[in-house]
C-alpha cells in the first residue's frame, strides 16, 4: 500500500487514520505479549496447579479486554453505553450459566462416586 496522501482524502483525516492504525498496532502488541505470557507459563513450567490456572485465567481475561478495547473499540464513552450494557449483561448471563453448569455437574459427579 502506498503511503502518499490521496488527493481526495479529507483534511485532518490523515492524522486520524494514523491514530486509528496506532490503536490496532498497540492492541496487536499487547495481545501478542499476553498470548506469549500465557503459553510461557505452561511451556516453561513457571507455575503449577491452581496458581497456574488462576494466572492463565487472568491473562485470558486481560487479553479479552484488550481485544474489546483495541479491536472492537468498546470504551466507556457516553455515546454508546448501550453496547457496553449489552456486553456486561451478556457476561453476567454467561457467568451464571457457566458457573452454574460446572457447579451442578461437579456435584452430581461427586454423588456418582462408588
Amino acid at each position: 500500500m502506498s503511503n502518499r496522501v490521496p488527493a481526495d482524502i479529507m483534511p485532518g483525516a490523515y492524522e486520524e487514520e494514523r491514530r486509528e492504525r496506532l490503536s490496532y498496532v498497540i492492541g496487536l502488541i499487547l495481545a501478542l505479549t499476553l498470548t506469549a505470557g500465557a503459553f510461557a507459563v505452561v511451556w516453561l513450567d513457571l507455575l503449577s496447579g491452581g496458581a497456574a490456572l488462576a494466572v492463565l485465567g487472568l491473562l485470558a481475561f486481560i487479553q479479552a479486554v484488550v481485544h474489546l478495547r483495541f479491536f472492537l473499540h468498546i470504551d466507556l464513552e457516553r455515546s454508546h453505553r448501550d453496547d457496553l450494557m449489552l456486553i456486561l449483561f451478556t457476561v453476567l448471563i454467561l457467568l451464571i450459566m457457566v458457573s452454574g453448569t460446572v457447579w451442578i455437574l461437579y456435584d452430581q459427579h461427586v454423588r456418582m462416586m462408588p
Binding site: A38, V41, V42, G57, A64, L68
Partner: peptide, 16 residues
C-alpha cells in the same frame, strides 16, 4: 475473542 477462551481453557488448562 472466543479463541482466547479456547486456547486458554481448552489447550493451556488441559496441559497445565
Amino acid at each position: 475473542v472466543v479463541w482466547i477462551g479456547i486456547f486458554t481453557f481448552v489447550y493451556l488448562f488441559g496441559v497445565a
